[in-house]
Nucleic acid binder design. Structure first.
Lengths: 151, 151
DNA sequence: ACAATTTCTATAAATTTATGTTAGAATTTT
DNA sequence: AAAATTCTAACATAAATTTATAGAAATTGT
């Protein structure tokens, strides 16, 4: 199965959640909040948010009253950046990005196909911003922000 | 990581291998051959070929002199059929095809994006035939058929 | 009829990767 | 100093992947 790992999926939801709470004040959101709303274990979120921080997609504020915020406004964050931070280069098969990965690279016809498909996917995510996700979310959930996350 | 499983990858190479050997006589190819040329364990190939047979993509001939052949000519076999046989429906995330999979389906904005991307991928594989793969392979390997599979 | 070849079936073991949890240290605010 | 919260490392569990084992069934050639 062609599958996106939970890191990518949960991390994207984490970012969307921060995006939905993003506003002028840009108040920090604690992981516990995100955990409750997104129904993802806080311990797992702690792991997932590390690469997002390293790649400068979120900012952290430690200590009481701390939490996380987006590092910049949602329209300036591409989905491809989020996925790249969480999962590395977007490729259906390792050999697409790492020619040395397999000794058959030079003559493997199948690789060409996986490569082409990977590029398609990459382009798709390249042209979607967090702002787009927020729009989709608000459209699907015209009610309050809170209800967006009902169980 | 967005990743195509080995079943899909190896199975596609298996099919391409059969395709490259496909000709008028349509002589059966033994798995040992494919195993040697593609450098995939014969034990694993035995497992992978089962769904290909069930889905009527290859035919088997038992006993001495037996082996496998394509069930029909390469231009009549779509890559999407191969992948579907090996991996089930093409979807980046389970919830894309199975709405019941997650309770958040009705309001999850992220799902829309995975769905869209899955459709893109599916269309791509829908429009590629084994014959296309064979062409690519022959173009990359203008020498003999044999050399295509040198290590 | 017999031996050799090869698919077919089932299961299990070993390995790797992905997912998730536990425990506690470090930092900051109140 | 206490509470809140991020940060870090290690551990535990589950799933996917790969290899291995053991033989049965079918077919061909001698």
């Amino acid at each position: 199965m062609i599958r996106l790992s939970t890191k990518g999926r949960y991390g994207t939801r984490l970012m969307l959640n921060l995006g939905l709470h993003y506003n002028k004040e840009n108040k920090a959101i604690v992981l516990k909040n995100i955990s409750d709303e997104e129904e993802i274990s806080i311990r797992y979120l702690e792991q997932i948010i590390i690469p997002l921080k390293i790649n400068n997609l979120v900012k952290s504020i430690r200590g009481a009253g701390g939490g996380y915020t987006l590092a910049r406004s949602p329209e300036k964050i591409k989905l491809s950046e989020i996925l790249h931070a969480l999962e590395g280069a977007c490729c259906l098969v390792e050999c697409v990005n790492d020619e040395e990965y397999c000794t058959r690279t030079s003559f493997c016809a199948v690789r060409e196909v996986w490569k082409e498909a990977s590029i398609m996917l990459k382009n798709y995510f390249e042209n979607l911003t967090l702002q787009d996700l927020i729009k989709i979310s608000k459209k699907k959930n015209p009610q309050t922000l809170k209800s967006t996350f009902n169980k």
